[in-house]
Amino acid sequence: MSERESDRMIEAEPGRTPRAGRGRDADNAPPEAIVAIPLRHPWRILIAVVLVLGLAVFVLDAAQRSDFGWPDVGKYIFDRRISQAAWVTLWLTIYSMIGAIVLGLLLAIMRLSPNPVLKSIAWLYIWIFRGTPVYVQLVFWGIVSLIYPVFTLGIPFTEPWVTIPNEVFTNLFITAVIGLSLNEAAYMSEIVRAGLLSVDEGQEEASTALAMSWGQTMRYVVVPQAMKIIIPPTGNEVISMLKTTSLVAAIPLSIDLYGVSRGISAVTFTPVPLLIVASLWYLLFTSILMVGQHFIEKRFSRGTGRVKTGKEPAGSAPAPTVPGEPGGPGAPLGTDFGGKG
């Protein structure tokens, strides 16, 4: 642009620059498509090439390295002992998460309750169990049966009325489930609490004004809406728990996936292939869970379309939802109107 031209542009009144004037002539014509040379990214290509080459070198090298023991990987990957141990790991995860969710819900409700005693207990619990490593906690639960060989009921410092041998903490599987649940509950309670707090206060108020009790309000109004917020991070916790179960070695429980693969390698002196075998099984499970997690997150993501529930008549129009609207439509979870509760 020459200097004379730019002067003219400044002189022209705002909104009526020469450019705008020219545009008016072509008002009815469709805008011309931009023809431009796209921006090039030479560094991206270079870095990608280097990385692919590096990976290829690593793979080729690893395939030939005898320490990886690939034949042993093939031999043990479908070993019955391994697949049974994988089964144990799955059940450890399931039981521990069930325990953690139930206790976490209880702790979350305690923390939100107006009762200062309950509030403090929940706070103390979360403080301790989130503030110490899960490995250390599992070691501790492993030796509880030595500290408390028997359970007694009676007046302290007198002859007990009832004495029960501590059979809970001598069963290492149960000890592992308890240890993992107690630790995870502290994290779950924070997730549940965030979910309960995310429900608009007006919901509880409206429910109260309809003469519903606190319990009914929670059950039919608050919790179903909180689930939207609670479920996605809970899925993440399940994935995390599956991997954390390998720490039950601290108890020591050795019938889980990692424990059994360690046990086999202790006999065969081939630790590396069995670590690879265990890792492949963990990867299989976490991959399946991650696919599930993807769908859960899609389903529960805030402000996106309403979840199909089958409750709506087929003919009703799928009206778009306002994105980000507070208290947008959610899945009518846990709302059965079947019987009287």
Binding site: M212, Q216, V221, K340, G341
Partner: peptide, 27 residues
């Protein structure tokens, strides 16, 4: 005592009918 709020406070996870029948059924 019935109450109507400025921001409606309908239960978003329930249909209109379900909103209306919840309290009569439960209470």
């Amino acid at each position: 005592i019935g109450m109507v709020f400025q921001r409606f406070n309908l239960f978003p996870h329930l249909t209109a009918i379900e909103n209306i029948i919840l309290a009569p059924m439960r209470v």
